[in-house]
Amino acid sequence: MDDLQLLTWARGPGLDLALGIFVLGVVWRLIEVYALGRKRDLAPARHRTGASGLHTVLRRSMPPPGMLKTSPVSYIGGFVFHIGLAIIVLLFAPHILLIKSLTGLSWPGLPSQFIDMVAVLTMIAMLVILVDRINKPVKRFLSTFGDWFAWVVTFLPVLTGWMAVQHLLLPYTLMLALHILSVELLLVVLPFTKLFHAITLFGSRWYSGKINAHKGVPV
């Protein structure tokens, strides 16, 4: 199989397979998680909870007071890397096309030099976070194989994508194929690793928001 064939496989059957497993996994895991249900809280609410779940979903994206100082790497690194990923995934024109072909939705993209810079920042942030995980006792203590693995599968798409665009190491075609394959790996493992937080995060925040708002505490 030459590189173009590998690329075509990655764009064709590989993508189909990966998206299939991803969709299957996400649906399955979501049902597995949320069908466990929870009991209704019989204590009268302090006031109506309204959109508090949604508020928490948004509010938790910001660091709590003081925490930025105590854990700057986690927050700034995390911000840079998550926002970077979002920019790369959502605002790089080729990615928008993929999204369009999957969902029919599209929007304008950003210049590739900008995306390029964001990719570098994102990778730097991820590396800093990795070093932090190695250096910081709490993080090192908590880390399991899954954490290292998740880092690698998240880092690879950014690295391969950037290297493909920059024509580093391997020919573009092959690198692009590897990039797509690495994204497919990410898709396949996402529902079954901590990367699933990308989806359950919303549920978790929403639950927190609701449970605490019931008592009148915005969290």
């Binding site: 895991r29 466990l36 929870r38 009991k39 908590l142 954490d147 549920g203 978790s204 639950y207 449970i211």
Partner: peptide, 13 residues
């Protein structure tokens, strides 16, 4: 329950 399942699924250490 579901919140616990969701919380554990979300933790990124």
């Amino acid at each position: 329950d579901a919140p616990i399942a969701s919380y554990f699924s979300s933790c990124v250490h």
